[in-house]
Design a binder for these strands. Structure first.
Lengths: 254, 254
DNA sequence: CCTACCGATCGGTAGG
DNA sequence: CCTACCGATCGGTAGG
């Protein structure tokens, strides 16, 4: 009861939606921004809490009470920042898609061949997906979206897949990637990537960087037109098991 | 009302649980078997209907009414063959695990190297997973299981992973598989495999056999110690895009 | 941001 | 195998 005004009062004092942008921003603006920022942060923390619940229990297995409890508030408090449960799920998917496209664009920009672009994209995506910022929803609760939300998601995801595929095809043209079925290769790649949150444990034996590196290496080997260059000496294969394990341990320690 | 006795009457007539096995089996046995078989088949059809619902809507997104409707009966009719909703999910997982181990054992038996055993296992699993028999649950509704059901599932799945890993390690020893982190390789492999039901469409452009073949080839390339042997001519990489696409079309037609 | 509450859905059962 | 129903949970809102 004693905190209930902290937000609604601020909203009355600053009906900023009717103001022109950029005027008196130094004083009013910073105050407004910090308030908007607060709301945005709260909404964001709701989305992250929800994503974690959805990841472990699924959309229908998660109640709004669960999400609220994780944040230490009561359910009705959430409805100031989100419209309803479906909007929460939709926004979670939005966060993941934004992140996916961000890393894709970085890969496209920095890579110098199809394969290198793909490697950069995958590494960036994986590192953030399992990094300490917390893994948002990747999983398969799309069926719980409302029809028009699902439409938009599918269209974005198709676009993402097409651009991944374009990288594979570019790599086949520039000679960095072996001839293969690009569509199927991208599906396999998505599977390997999106499965990670199922088995990765934060604070476990593997760092996020290590996992991203190793998976990129594995995927690279499946697509690389010149595997010899990353494999080093061929004959090591015939060495004893223990020596191999030692090499792996060394890699693990990285 | 008029059909309600078809099963309970038969059960009263033949209290077979107290009979010794193997006596008078020729006459009584076949009658009993056909009745038991009927019940077993009905239970099985419930599990398959449920698996399809769970796959598309998740455990909590599926009601017992949904499952019943898919079978053309009413909800209470299901409870003659299954104890409750959790038992249904648990039994679905059981079917998938049984299938997984079946193909693993076939691969272990028939393969002549670590890599070949792995290839056979994966191919068999994938072909059945997406074959016309209908894909059961693979997905991630484990969180919906009851604690002791989850325990058993995890223990079986760990065992499966360990045996897959053993094949990878065997391949590293016998020189068929490149030195790599076996644990991580198996995770990536499971990801690529279990993602398939998410994108595969029955009756679409790809047959189950084609997808299984292509994925096995892709996975093989990632692990093979002698990739040259399956890649054929190296220099084809520098050919134009169209020519590659033509090659792919040819593969697709297979 | 909380208490209190409504309407709907759903798992499971009674009884036939 | 069906009709009818109970008890519990849950999304969302009223009102302050």
């Amino acid at each position: 009861m004693q905190h209930r005004q902290t937000i609604s009062k601020a909203e009355k004092v600053s009906p900023n939606s009717t103001k022109g942008a950029g005027r008196l921003v130094a004083t009013w603006g910073s105050a407004l921004q910090s308030q908007e920022e607060k709301n945005r942060l709260k909404r964001n923390s709701i989305l992250h809490a929800a994503a974690q619940c959805f990841n472990s229990s699924g959309f229908h297995g998660t109640s709004m009470d669960d999400i609220a409890e994780r944040l230490g508030v009561t359910k009705p408090a959430l409805y100031r920042y989100v419209k309803n449960k479906h909007e929460v799920l939709d926004a979670c998917f939005g966060l993941v898609m934004d992140m996916s496209f961000r890393h894709l664009e970085e890969g496209e920009r920095k890579g110098r061949s199809g394969l290198e672009k793909l490697r950069l994209t995958i590494h960036g995506y994986l590192a953030e997906l399992i990094g300490e910022f917390g893994h948002p929803v990747v999983i398969l609760e799309e069926g719980a979206l409302l029809p028009d939300q699902l439409c938009r998601l599918i269209s974005r995801r198709d676009q993402l897949e097409r651009r991944y595929r374009a990288l594979v095809e570019e790599g086949m043209r520039d000679g960095s990637i072996i001839p293969c079925n690009a569509k199927l290769a991208v599906f396999a790649l998505f599977g390997a990537m999106n499965w990670v949150p199922k088995w990765y444990r934060q604070g476990g034996e593997w760092s996020a960087e290590f996992v991203a590196d190793q998976l990129v290496q594995l995927i690279t080997r499946a697509l690389d037109a010149h595997p010899e260059s990353i494999r080093g000496d061929e004959e090591v294969v015939s060495v004893t098991c223990e020596s191999h394990l030692n090499r792996l341990e060394a890699n693990n320690a990285y």
